[in-house]
């Protein structure tokens, strides 16, 4: 099968205005301006197969939204080649648009003052969706996303969770082959987050819709996206499964030792102290080969050890380590 999205050496350079500070700077800028070149995306290559779910991850300003804008046909790449469903997205923006759905987390595409249904109806005409297909899809989405109670309410009266579900449904009404979501769970409460995640996972698995997500929410990643593409400074840092990311980084497993009374300062060769709460001490095991027995053996008897807990590293920990060790890892990967 050929990839649904393929990027090869894609780059994007912006010209940005340099602001001068202070009163004098403001006066000077009335007459002259300086620009600097910014490489928002720099030689990024990857391929995404149909039916995949991928999180395009990176800190703010890493160039992820620029990349998404190029894939969706909003911006033209300034270097490299990009193909979506076998087409150059920018040159074929309108054709491309029919086959993709986009949800911008903070920018609503619904008509604020009108009932949700009116926005759907307008999209039916814009996307030229056959009547029967539209009715089927709307019924399916309404049921799956539990939207029946508010389909006829003005968007401005909806809660954030309801609105986000309505936005996602709007992006799916025309059966897109690829669904892009920009921070779809940001600001939602736990229940709404869970509903959105379950639904997206379902759409990906049952309907085979390819999903590209940009999210900082690590639970989103664990529940929706098996694959991660991480970028920083416009460059690709990591592309692969979360499991592989963990393995590559080495598991910083966390060992929690609970004592009957504070045993005083403890230093171990096999683990480093991460947090000391007196009677409870957190250690991080530096690598995979160290076993629990090694640590307990080194510790020996006589400290009044009450309980031992070993935790797998959570994803937040993994990603934090990742960005901290970036230069080291860039060489290793």
């Amino acid at each position: 099968m050929s990839p649904i999205i393929s990027a090869s050496g894609v780059g994007k350079t912006f010209r940005q205005l340099k602001r001068q500070s202070g009163f004098g700077g403001a006066i000077r800028s009335l007459f002259s301006r300086d620009y600097s070149e910014i490489r928002a995306v720099d030689g990024v290559s990857f391929a995404i197969e149909p039916g995949e779910a991928v999180d395009y991850l990176g800190p703010n300003g890493a160039g992820k939204s620029t990349m998404i804008k190029m894939i969706t046909g909003i911006l033209t790449p300034s270097a490299g080649s990009l193909s979506v469903l076998g087409r150059e997205p920018h040159a074929n923006r309108m054709v491309n648009a029919r086959e993709i759905g986009v949800v911008f987390g903070q920018r609503s595409q619904l008509w604020w003052d009108l009932p949700v249904r009116d926005s759907y109806d307008l999209n039916r005409h814009i996307y030229d969706i056959p009547e029967a297909r539209f009715a089927d899809n709307l019924a399916f989405l309404t049921a799956m996303l539990d939207m029946a109670p508010y389909l006829d309410r003005p968007v401005r009266q909806l809660s954030l969770g309801q609105r986000m579900r309505a936005e996602i449904a709007l992006a799916l009404l025309h059966d897109p082959k690829i669904l892009f979501l920009d921070e779809p769970t940001i600001g939602l409460d736990v229940v709404a987050k869970d509903a959105v995640r379950r639904f997206l996972s379902e759409v990906n698995k049952q309907r085979g819709t390819t999903i590209i997500l940009t999210t900082h929410d690590l639970v989103d990643i664990e529940e929706i996206c098996p694959r991660l593409i991480m970028v920083d400074d416009g460059k690709l840092l990591f592309d692969g499964e979360l499991k592989r990311l963990r393995a590559t980084l080495g598991s910083r497993r966390r060992l929690i030792l609970e004592f009957a009374t504070d045993p005083g300062p403890l230093a171990l060769a096999t683990a480093t102290l991460a947090a000391d709460e007196g009677a409870t001490k957190h250690f991080l095991l530096e690598n995979e080969t160290v076993s629990l027995l090694d640590v307990l053996g080194e510790l020996g008897r006589g400290h009044g050890l009450k309980d031992v807990k070993l935790e797998e590293p959570d994803i937040e920990e993994v990603i934090r380590t990742f960005y901290q060790n970036k230069p080291k890892l860039a060489a290793a990967l």
Binding site: G73, I74, R93, A97, I100, F104, R107, Q109, I126, Y127
Partner: peptide, 18 residues
């Protein structure tokens, strides 16, 4: 600035018409 124009560009319709 707010990116709402981007949201128009992902629709299969001319942005001027829209």
């Amino acid at each position: 600035r707010l990116g709402t124009f981007d949201a128009i560009l992902v629709k299969p319709i001319g942005p001027w018409t829209f």
